[in-house]
Design a protein around this nucleic acid. Structure first.
Lengths: 195, 195
DNA sequence: GCCCATTTGTTCCGTAACAGACAAATCGTC
DNA sequence: GACGATTTGTCTGTTACGGAACAAATGGGC
């Protein structure tokens, strides 16, 4: 991407994040965003169709970062065998969320936090749950796959919401344990030993 | 000034300042500057003819800030009657220099500090010393005005150099006292009661 | 209701920044 | 001194940004 585009994009993202930490989404005007980002009006609209689109893209970028695979193998936390190991994968994602406090936690616990979680919820539903069951096995399930997926992703996101609201007291490993404890039985009944 | 120009200008200034804190002037290449500033090569040369010009403009900007009058009257330090009071004016400039540590002191005490002081020396000579004697009185001096001016500005800059090298131990007021003590007699002999 | 102020979203054109290529100059190393 | 590698400084066309003006939409306040 053009260097200029990247600069204005991050400038707008940072401006927007900062404003979200101060006031709720509805109270923020485009004018404030471009003032703080120090970009022109026409520039803003060249990047984002609307304020909602900006929010959506910001969230998508953040979530993609949290779930990015190439960061999962870096030296911050060593999870070499994250593949095919749900517990390790979840633990790693939780670490990512926690260590990214400055970005994620700050935004997710602000006044408009619910808004983000709805995006987060959708993102997790789209991404994480695609690998829950292979497509060919989905027909054999007792309940519709979409229902199951919705249940799991909802539980996951809700757990994170709970975790953050209480100040991230639990360790990622602990939380991962708890999550496995409440999902494994459900998935196990659907023909899987380990969720 | 166009918002874009201001952005790249400060980006280059900050990049350059950062590099100067790490290595000496001669070791710094334009390539490093533009890499860290995250601007294109052609952009750099659109702003600065050469690396020397960049240095000169950076210094001029910094010095102008230190000696700016509209900052002298702000609430950081209260010097309402700085006008026509050399001691107060000098004290205030010293405060400015000290509180601007992040910019000035860092740069002036780095490996290329001597280089800056030569610019600083020139700046002070041009600016501060213009008001030393009214033009109509200069003919009556025992020694040439340019000589006197050079002596005073040199003493002033050298004092600051000494101050910074030793870690800004003395208070601005103290330093200002010392300076007046060594300059007042000289100027007094030239027909002035107070420098 | 109405009105005024602010915000929104679009459009235009001038300009600065970009990438890339290029020859000249500089620097090390042999 | 000759050499290759890096750096320097200049140039090109292309692209994104800025600024300003504008009508439409929104939103309080009387």
């Amino acid at each position: 991407m053009d260097r200029r585009q990247q600069k204005t994009r991050t400038a707008i993202f940072e401006s927007f994040s900062g404003l979200l930490a101060e006031k709720r989404y509805n109270q923020i005007s485009v004018q404030e965003i471009i003032d703080r980002a120090n970009v022109g009006r026409s520039t803003f609209y060249a990047h984002f169709e609307t304020k909602d689109a900006l929010l959506h893209e910001l969230c998508t970028d953040l979530f993609a970062h949290v779930f990015s695979d190439h960061l999962m193998t870096e030296r911050t936390h060593d999870f070499s065998s994250a593949r095919d190991d749900p517990h390790a994968a979840i633990t790693h994602i939780l670490y990512h969320l926690r260590d990214n406090r400055k970005n994620m936690v700050g935004i997710m616990t602000c006044e408009s936090g619910e808004l983000f979680f709805s995006f987060f919820r959708q993102y997790v539903d789209d991404l994480l749950m695609d690998q829950m069951f292979p497509k060919e096995e989905r027909g054999k399930l007792e309940i519709p796959y979409e229902f199951l997926r919705n249940h799991i992703s909802g539980s996951f996101v809700h757990m994170i919401q709970w975790w953050m609201k209480r100040g991230l007291k639990e360790l990622p490993e602990e939380l991962s344990d708890y999550f496995m404890a409440v999902t494994r039985p459900v998935l196990g009944m659907q023909g899987r030993k380990y969720g």
